[in-house]
């Protein structure tokens, strides 16, 4: 598939450019990689806080409770009830929502309407809260103003449209 070739090709291309321009890619690589450890140390406390909260949220059953509460609202927009927990966990944690997606595939066939809808939800959305927290981790700014509401509205609209399309085809 396309994606299998694009990354090796990009690496090869960049190495060729480096050789062609008589640069030393090895030392550049080392210099760049050095930053990774400090970056992760900066990001770690935020990661810890998010993943800890998400785990308690899931284990306590509060997420399932919230899912039950909000299911009619999502249902009104044509989203199957079975997807509600996925929709709630998805903006918070990639690993958490992947576990939920796995459950959905195990309980309903991946090729069923619910399975395909869940695939659209997971594939067309991002971990909104996770990404925005991590991106801000090296900045002093803590107020994102209207960014998060816009992301949620935009993602939900996309998901609703995608699931509606699945009904048609």
């Amino acid at each position: 598939m396309f994606s299998q070739f694009i990354i090796p090709f990009a690496f090869l291309l960049v190495l060729l450019i480096a050789i062609f321009r008589k640069k030393d890619p090895y030392n550049y690589f080392i210099d760049g990689s050095k930053k990774a450890v400090n970056l992760v140390i900066d990001v770690f406390p935020y990661l810890l806080a998010i993943l800890m909260a998400v785990e308690v949220f899931r284990v306590s059953g509060v997420s399932a409770f919230l899912a039950g509460l909000t299911a009619p609202v999502f249902g009104w927009f044509g989203l199957p009830v079975e997807l509600t927990e996925l929709l709630i966990i998805r903006p918070l944690s990639g690993a958490g929502s992947l576990a939920v997606l796995n459950d959905i595939f195990a309980n309903h066939e991946p090729d069923s309407f619910i399975g395909r809808s869940a695939s659209v939800v997971y594939g067309s959305s991002e971990t909104i809260f996770y990404v925005s927290t991590i991106y801000l981790s090296q900045s002093k700014c803590r107020n994102l103003r209207y960014a998060i509401p816009i992301s949620i509205v935009a993602t939900l609209t996309g998901v609703i449209a995608g699931v509606a399309l699945l009904r048609v085809f």
Binding site: L98, L101, N102, F105, A106, E109, P110, D111, G115, R116, S117, S119, V120, G123, S124, S125, I150, S151, V153, A154, T155, T157, G158, V159, A161, G162, V163, L165, L166, F169
Partner: peptide, 28 residues
């Protein structure tokens, strides 16, 4: 993940998914 769960039509959701992701970015 779909492949792991023995999906017979692994890519059947791709078109809807693509439209959803493009739409959400444009709306954003």
């Amino acid at each position: 993940l779909r492949t792991q769960h023995n999906s017979q039509a692994v890519t059947s959701f791709l078109l809807a998914c693509f439209i959803a992701t493009v739409l959400s970015t444009i709306i954003g």
